[in-house]
Amino acid sequence: MSEIDISLEIWRQKDSLASGVFETYSLQRISTDMSFLEMLDVLNEQLTREGKDPVAFDHDCREGICGMCGAVVNGIAHGPEPETTLCQLHMRHFKSGDTIVIEPFRSRVFLPIKDLMVDRSGFDRIIQAGGYVSVNTGGTPDANAIPVPSTTAELAMDAAACIGCGACVASCPNGAAMLFTGAKIAQLSLLPQGQQERKERALSMVAAMDNEGFGNCTNERECETVCPKGISIRNIARMNSEYFKASFFS
């Protein structure tokens, strides 16, 4: 273990209406074993002791699965390490003397709440538009009644691994939510359980996505590069064809 001194430039915004500014802080003797969020905890303890307002940021599980945390670190959503959420990023990836710029996820849809916190409820509304199989509790057939080839199940699982963190939108130069939406459409269009509503789902989820104000995909591949779960843009390709088929052949 070693220790580093760093300086931070963090976006500070009091509330959704206030205009934000970057504030600079310096932190001494930060253990390289700390996670990025623990480093922010240390900063917040320091700010609290100085009687200042701590930096608000979203976080919960701190093991890379809840999708609550996220910020743009030195220009990259969730920081420089591939397939890593902010909470799983460790300070050993930074050097003493580094300046780390921390900005909230930005998009027209992800409205700022405070500091690094943004509103990602647009994602929920996309799922509400059709990211489910309409089946009530009870009365379902035996789990083994419909076989699913293991390769199909694996592909569906690849898509289903999405944690809804919003890094795809934040990193997309167009603020598009196609990776998020595509992953859910792909998951359910692959599985036999999703077939009944396959077309309706593609139509309504894409409509909801557009309606929220997310941008258009121009295949920049930023989303899959920053995705902490390594979700492939193949899922976007699948959504494109699902949507086409649903529009013309339903």
């Binding site: 789990a143 293991s150 699982m157 998951q187």
Partner: peptide, 13 residues
């Protein structure tokens, strides 16, 4: 298990 499979949970196969 029946319920979750019907919802499209991608269990290992």
């Amino acid at each position: 298990i029946d319920q979750c499979v019907a919802q499209g949970v991608p269990f290992a196969r």
